[in-house]
Design a protein around this nucleic acid. Structure first.
Lengths: 124, 124
DNA sequence: CTAAGACCTGACGTCGACGTCAGGGGCAAG
DNA sequence: CTTGCCCCTGACGTCGACGTCAGGTCTTAG
């Protein structure tokens, strides 16, 4: 598969795919003329990368935990980093949830204030 | 309170506080010589701003939902935006959770592979 | 053969939330 | 009065994940 096809299949831009390769997140074979060739598995690979980016991980972080997928390499350091990222995400989910609940509280009290025609008050 | 004190109390840089003012997230009185003066309530205000930034909201978004706190203004449009952001956050929490679970799965299977001395495999 | 489209490698532009530097004023202590 | 610290307003720098443009090559349909 060439880069354009991978781009349309994953919904990621061609530029982004080349960028992923620069960051060592993605590799490709080259045709004699220098064009990139991807196996079918690249689609899932790119989708995983996108998911991790969306979760707020940086290229550096992803490249640190991705070798497991790539080379089948499983080292204790890799597992440590993986666990660390998992924990970071769990903590982040907790923060987001409490912030969401705070917005919810503001929303509820504000809605009541609107119904009662009173000015709104924000809890601590 | 002057800007330096507010900065140390909130753990936010002086530069950031001036930036918040530029973005209309924060207001200040000025002394005759032009120095910013903040009331005590500014501390909680800045902390709320930080929390919303940390939740991934942009200045534009925050300024769109913050007037409720500021002026006590409660309009239907404001409540709509508030609800929309709350829903966006709920959705984001869901995405993060599934990604975290995926990392967890990778971690678990990789740990087993390491124990068994086998190469790791990544699910779906 | 030729023209259109897909691909290549640089390299500069963008955007948001600040950091940092330059150049200058305010103010309390000694 | 001056030293030292805090404050002010520009204005340029930064970083990450790309967008976009320039200038050239490859491939494929007609």
């Amino acid at each position: 598969m060439r880069i354009g096809e991978l781009a349309t299949k994953t919904g990621v831009s061609v530029r982004a795919l080349r960028y992923y390769e620069q960051q060592h997140l993605l590799t490709s074979e080259r045709s004699p003329s220098g064009q990139r060739q991807y196996p079918d598995g690249a689609v899932g690979r790119v989708e995983l990368i996108q998911e991790l980016y969306a979760a707020g991980l940086s290229s550096r972080t992803i490249v640190g935990i991705l070798p497991c997928v790539v080379t089948g390499e499983v080292t204790p350091e890799l597992l440590d980093r993986l666990a660390a990222e998992r924990d970071r995400m769990t903590a982040r989910i907790g923060d987001l949830t409490s912030t969401r609940d705070r917005l919810e509280t503001i929303f509820t009290t504000s809605t009541e204030s609107l119904a009662a025609g009173k000015p709104c008050a924000i809890p601590g």
